[in-house]
Design a protein around this nucleic acid. Sequence first.
DNA 1: CGATTTCGTTAGCTATGCTAATTAAATTGC
DNA 2: GCAATTTAATTAGCATAGCTAACGAAATCG
Lengths: 148, 148
Amino acid sequence: MSKDALPDIAQQLHSVAIHLLRRLRRSDDQMGLSGPRASALSVLVFGGPVSLAQLAKAEQVKPPTMARLIDALEAAGLARREADKSDLRAVRIVATTKGRKLLLEGRARRLRELTKILEGATAAERAALAGTVSTLQRLLKQPPPASD
Amino acid sequence: MSKDALPDIAQQLHSVAIHLLRRLRRSDDQMGLSGPRASALSVLVFGGPVSLAQLAKAEQVKPPTMARLIDALEAAGLARREADKSDLRAVRIVATTKGRKLLLEGRARRLRELTKILEGATAAERAALAGTVSTLQRLLKQPPPASD
DNA sequence: CGATTTCGTTAGCTATGCTAATTAAATTGC
DNA sequence: GCAATTTAATTAGCATAGCTAACGAAATCG
């Protein structure tokens, strides 16, 4: 398994992450939803009703960008803007039943795709993979230095 | 260390890849180059002169998309189109010295950032990480089922 | 030598990101 | 309690990045 210099690992990890997500995007496409739309819908499905600003923050985009994503989800009948009774400026964005169903199906498809890729790994490699994933989860919990 | 069911690993791997790239994008921004531009320049710097079609294929985009990326790199003085003497239709795209320098500096910065994140890993975790990265590289080499 | 294929470009569409400016509602302060 | 400020969302307009379709020019094939 070659060198273990950290910068070298970092470079390859970066590259492999890019290629992995590129591959998985194809499954998202099958759902008829782009990555950003699928991701926003996912937050709605798993995170419950939220305001536009909250959703924008969760997806790390600005409010106008999120507004347009919601427009698209709404036009497709996958999400809905509802009035917030306690704050008439705000909107509550919720996934529709159709949106929830589509997302869960798409998610299952994407995971089947990735699972199929991972089936090429040996048992030992799978164990290492599982360990590495949780390591990365831990490391990424540490907040970035600033500007957030 | 948690469950090792493949679909579960797949789900978490997907999620962690997304969060990792989100984090690293910040370093790319510091270089003044968008992700796609930095990525294309990287191929030029490390892969030597290539045709537009080859570069498009390497980056998994269509030729017109790559042409515009090269336009931008050229306008910034980071790459150059050269004539291919053996095929007058083709162009040879090369990184300029300035482009090479910028990319190497940016790459160093990004890798310092990721390296800093990875420093939180134990020696054993780093070894597992290196192994997992090459496993994933191997698995992703397998072509997708179709449409490519 | 004509037909086809290949390389690159141009034109034009969509989607996703942004900032700036606007409207409406909530909050703060006097 | 009303004016000023802040906050939520939208609108307008710009840049980047992806695509397909259509084209010109060069290479290759019959």
